[in-house]
Design a protein around this nucleic acid. Structure first.
Lengths: 158, 158
DNA sequence: TTTACTGCAAATATTTTGCAATATC
DNA sequence: GATATTGCAAAATATTTGCAGTAAA
């Protein structure tokens, strides 16, 4: 069965990968792929499970892990282990971007820094064959900066 | 007690942090700091524990976690969660660098890309107050590339 | 003397694995 | 029909927490 009807390129790529590894095309795998194809940015395992359950097709945690690991191996999915956040995944086909991470509230924001992207396209590391990169910028987001300032003022007033 | 005699700046910074938070200067904390000060690159919690045990001063896992978390909060230590590797730590005072990570053997290599560093110094993200960044470049290292090529040749010969 | 810290063990969280039943090929 | 996959539960791993004894201030 194939339920991921909305994303032919992803399906084709996954099918090809499964064939090459002599793995099976199970409904669970395609149901999860369908969800992945619809999410614009990052998502977690919990989100995948929740979506599957909500759409009336329960998929076990073990199978979700299995599928996600296959998709990572197939280079269709990328994994982000970021301190303070549950493991995040995103489609490898997402255009390159940087991640701004607030060290106070741990919120994550994607930004397209076109100068950075262009610059990175010029970088080569001698004997290393680059596939992709992850860029995390840590700092304080405007909301947390505002809160901190407010608290500082309050303290002074005392 | 203060055993981290070899790194006065680090000690001072940690002491100041502990004071500001009304925390105590325990021998365990300084013993771990001393180790950290001597490691050139990345290290893991296991390495810290092993070193402590070898030097005859056992420190419990809970205390190591506690200390490491304090040092991260004090911005003296940075944490790297990299897929396929145990959580890595490194001194925040280490000069900026990029990480090359082989997606096959999971080996990590630090490189100083001075053009990248210079470029990053020009980047600003509007309402975001940048503290530091992490740059991970994923790909195939020369060793794994060679192995793959060799296997391909072997397969052809059959 | 007050109370934060340590060590240990238990608790929690996350991911992997073993196995019987099932479904793909 | 052969065997890969699923779901569940148990195991393995990583980190945090509760608590009683200890030590820093």
């Amino acid at each position: 069965m194939n339920t991921a009807s909305g994303s032919p390129e992803l399906i084709d790529k996954f099918v090809e990968f499964l064939k090459s590894k002599k793995l099976r095309k199970t409904p669970e795998r395609f149901a999860l792929l369908e969800y992945i194809a619809t999410v614009p940015g990052h998502f977690t395992l919990d989100m995948m499970q929740q979506h599957a359950d909500e759409s009336g097709f329960h998929v076990s945690r073990a199978t979700i892990y299995n599928t996600v690991n296959l998709l990572v191996e197939a280079r269709m999915l990328r994994r982000h282990d970021i301190e303070g956040l549950p493991t995040q995944y995103e489609l490898a086909s997402t255009p390159p971007h940087s991640h701004l991470i607030c060290t106070t509230c741990h919120k994550l924001k994607e930004v397209r820094d076109k100068y950075f992207i262009a610059f990175m396209n010029t970088r080569k590391y001698n004997a290393f064959n680059t596939q992709y990169y992850s860029h995390y910028v840590f700092g304080t987001c405007s909301t947390c900066a505002r809160k901190r300032k407010r608290n500082a003022v309050t303290t002074k007033k005392k």
